[in-house]
Write a protein that binds this DNA or RNA. Structure first.
Lengths: 184, 184
DNA sequence: TCATGCATGTAACAGGTTACATGATTAG
DNA sequence: CTAATCATGTAACCTGTTACATGCATGA
């Protein structure tokens, strides 16, 4: 009877991002995702726009038009009581299993013996530079949220950034290992 | 005219695993993947079996039947010269972009304020236990490959395991942070 | 005039997983 | 007798991405 299937993981994430006010549009959600959950669960804008009507059909969110001047009108969404309940239940009960990572650089290292050392070394350095840049954005975000007292929710969100920072530190240390092992 | 598309990333990985002797069957490849590349690029058996005929159609591998007694007959694959060349080229030239990770536990932490502390704490501890177990399997694999002198290829493969070990150490340290932040 | 931000969406595709289907042999 | 190992595959599905399509307003 439902005909609308349960949200996919990405759909639940979108719902989760709507849990706290203010009401947000697809455009807002995409931007919010980019600076919050993106580092452990990337969500594209196409995905956001696809999930919103499904969540509405399930009765988990309600959209309403907002007129604007200067910029285009938009449609913002707020969670319904059922949506809030469903999200809490999902969060407590899901088992999404182990993190699945697909790490291109590790592929290059694994098969690295088949690669000219200079090519590999260049890739390693490029990656290290990207990691450093990423760490800078994470620490910036952390500092932005670090002022004064934090809500419980803000504390939890900050913790995921700390994960990113720790992981990057580990990756940089490993990159140094690899550099040493291959010479130069 | 080709009609057969280029391999997907997973397909290239399968080809990569065939580069070194001995010739392997789909069954062998799946097992090999599980103890080598799985921790940075998981490949299911269904995927392996699907890629093999495509690689053959592209002229990158050649399969041949092997009769066995006691166990079922099998079909093993060896790379062709074109396959070897194509793999080297791919490895040097691809840009698969940044690692994309989807980390369920970070989802739970990010929205953790909406979760009973005891539930969250239990998940954290379960995850920590799993990480410890995983680290044990990595170190076992490392020790197996650590005897005596290593080929260049073996050294590179071992380095990816060291990455896993470093990443787990970082994750465990972060889990301790979270535990401290939420108390109990 | 040109790029950027705001704003929304769709269609086609890619990549990979789950569940199903089958069957012999060996070890406990 | 049962479970595990060896062995191969397919069909349906899920999840998500890319590329396309549109258009106004603002600031440089």
């Amino acid at each position: 009877m439902t005909s609308v299937p349960d949200p996919s993981p990405g759909g639940w994430l979108v719902l989760g991002l709507l849990m706290d006010p203010p009401a947000r549009s697809g455009y807002d959600l995409q931007a919010l995702a980019a600076r919050s959950v993106a580092h452990f669960w990337p969500i594209t804008k196409a995905h956001v726009y696809a999930e919103l009507p499904r969540l509405e059909a399930l009765g988990y969110v309600r959209g309403s038009a907002v007129r604007q001047s200067g910029v285009p009108d938009k449609r913002v969404y707020t969670p319904t009581p059922q949506g809030k309940a469903a999200f809490s239940r999902w969060l407590a009960e899901v088992d999404l299993g182990e993190p699945k990572l697909r790490h291109p650089l590790l592929v290059k290292v694994f098969f690295g013996a088949a690669l000219p050392p200079a090519v590999l070394a260049a890739e390693l350095d490029r990656h290290a530079a990207e990691l450093s840049a990423l760490r800078a954005t994470y620490t910036t975000l952390l500092e932005q949220s670090a002022g004064g007292r934090r809500s419980r929710a803000a504390t939890m969100r900050a913790l995921t950034l700390r994960h990113g920072v720790r992981r990057i530190a580990a990756d940089l240390a490993w990159l140094a290992d690899v550099r040493e092992a291959i010479g130069q």
